[in-house]
Amino acid sequence: MSELGTLLKVTREKKGYTLDELQETTKIQKRYLEAIEAGRYDRLPGPFYARAFIRSVADVLGLDPDLLLKQYGHELPKIVEMQDTPVRLRRHERFSKPDLFGPWVARALLVLFFLLIVTIIYVFVVRQSSPSLPLTDLPGTPEVKDHLTGATGDGGSDGGGVVGSGPGSAEGGPNAPFGTDMPGEPTDRGSGEAPRDTNAPLSPDETAPHPELKLVEEVGKTSRYVLSGVSTFQAELEAQGGDVWVKVTADSKNGPTLLEKTLKGGDTVALSAGEAKTLYFSFGRTRNARLHFSGLTLDLSDKPDVYRVEVSLATEPSSL
């Protein structure tokens, strides 16, 4: 048995996992888990799968996969890189480009082009030969007069002058243009509401900061978020649609463990984070997990089975 396999087996037994439970969480077949613990990496599908399986198992058991692979990498089979060798075809093996368009297609396109030219010429000649009548010569066309220089009111002039100030004029009469204020009419046509005093102080609801959860980066199987608008964590974990294994530490990956258990489907657990500024979540069967922070929900249904989430408080809560 290899040192790496012994370490994984001892850690699994210490955590209280059976091989069947580890198989359900990591989705790795039980025979492959047994081969890893026995150091029989030749029974795995290949060198790449050996490293991938060890990473998944280490994540569930709370171990650092990068540190394990660096320390015990000499026990794992090496990955052989394949070099692509160009294949040259002999002359008689070279493929000839098929003729997609036969001669009949070229003839058809030529005929269509000729018909298009004839149609354009015909339309141009017909339009040039058709007489066009001026607008004033059409029967039934009313005479249009200038409404400023030709129209007259009771007090206006009769031809070409400025409009008068009588009942038919533009100022104060019934025919005044739309939008002209009538004498004695209030100029405020608003909704009747008093305008808001812009110097009045804002209410507490308008000045209070609102919680905001922002994604900073997503690298591999880890997402990092920043929670602003709050000074302490108010977090809840929820299992929807199935069981979820979760481990929560404070301030660092190896910091104090706040929670480590398997939530059954439908369970909800509230976290007491104290004065912690960063929470580290490690999940198994992540798709069933939901995180809630101060009324905000983080849905992880599209994440891999083994996944990590880091949430840090903003240094200064932002106010909207």
Rank of each mutant, 00 (worst) to 15 (best):
E316I: 13
L271G: 05
T149R: 10
K30I: 15
L63I: 08
G173V: 06
G73E: 07
K145E: 08
A208V: 12
A151I: 13
H210T: 15
V105F: 15
P65A: 10
Y280R: 02
R40A: 05
D299I: 10
K303R: 13
G150P: 00
A200Q: 05
E193F: 15
V144Q: 10
G265P: 03
G284T: 02
R287N: 06
R285S: 06
T222K: 14
L7R: 03
S231V: 13
F124Y: 15
A276G: 10
V118R: 02
M182N: 07
H210G: 09
V216A: 08
G62Y: 14
A276V: 08
L63R: 02
R43E: 11
D59T: 09
S130M: 14
V163K: 14
P304H: 10
E171V: 14
S312V: 08
G192V: 08
F283L: 13
L33S: 00
G265A: 12
R12Q: 04
T286S: 06
V87Y: 07
A200F: 12
L296Y: 01
P174N: 00
L61D: 01
D66P: 01
R88F: 09
G73N: 03
A276P: 09
L68A: 06
G140D: 15
G266S: 07
S203R: 07
R55A: 12
D197W: 07
D99I: 14
L202H: 08
T152P: 01
A235M: 10
S231N: 07
Y307F: 15
G16R: 13
V118F: 04
F53L: 03
